[in-house]
Design a protein around this nucleic acid. Structure first.
Lengths: 94, 94
DNA sequence: GCAATTTAGTTTATATTATAAACTAGTTTG
DNA sequence: CAAACTAGTTTATAATATAAACTAAATTGC
C-alpha cells in the first residue's frame, strides 16, 4: 500500500543536507554545518553516507591554506529527493 | 533555521499508523497490521510508543471471543501530525 | 616565536531506535 | 484432541544516529 520511504533520506540531518543542496546545488561543509546546526562529526558521517549512495559528490580542496570540503548534489540525488517527496505525500495525504 | 522534526512521528511505521488514523480516526490493530504490512511485534512496539505519547488511545477488548485492540487518534495526536507536516514542508520546500 | 586557541574535519565509541524472533494465551478446524 | 491459526506482547538483535575524542594545520596573543 504505502511506498517504502528511502531510508537514506528518511533521516532528519540527511534530509536537511539534501534539502539545502536542492536549493543551492553546491555548498561548503562549513556552510552545511552552520545551516543544519549539526556537529561536525555527525555531519561528516551523514555526508559520507550520501556520498556513498552517489547522491552527492564530495570534493576536498583548499580555500587559501585551510582545507575545504565542497558538496555537490548529483542528478541521482535530485531524483531520489524528488521521489522521496512524492512517496512521503502518500503518507501525509498532501 | 530548520525546525526539529518530532522524532516520534519521524519514523516510517509510526507515521504510517498515524496517517491511517488521521483518515479513519479509529482502527483495529489487525487493520493497521494489514495496511502497514508490518510485523505484529513491530506494530505492537510502535503503537505503545504512540500511546505513551498520548497521540493515540489503545483499548483492549473482545470481538466475539477473540481479543481485539482498537486504536483511536487523540486531539493531541492530530495536532502533532499537523505540526509534523508543517515542519516537514520546510525541509521539502513544499 | 612559541603556547593557547581556533578551524576543518575524521574516526570511534556510545546511546537510541527499529525490527524481527521467540513466546503467551486462547480459538478454530479436521 | 492434536495441529494450525489468530491476536497480540516481550525480548533480543541489528541498524542508525549522535557525540566525544582525536588529527592536523592555522591563527592569535604575549
Amino acid at each position: 500500500m504505502l511506498k517504502k520511504l528511502d531510508p537514506l533520506l528518511h533521516s532528519e540531518l540527511r534530509l536537511a543536507i539534501m534539502s539545502l543542496l536542492i536549493s543551492v546545488k553546491k555548498a561548503e561543509f562549513t556552510y552545511l554545518k552552520e545551516q543544519t546546526e549539526a556537529t561536525a562529526g555527525n555531519l561528516s558521517v551523514q555526508v559520507t553516507k550520501l556520498e556513498n549512495a552517489a547522491y552527492i559528490i564530495v570534493e576536498k580542496g583548499y580555500k587559501g591554506k585551510m582545507p575545504q570540503t565542497v558538496c555537490t548534489i548529483t542528478e541521482k540525488g535530485i531524483e531520489a529527493f524528488e521521489k522521496y517527496v512524492k512517496d512521503l505525500k502518500e503518507y501525509l495525504k498532501l
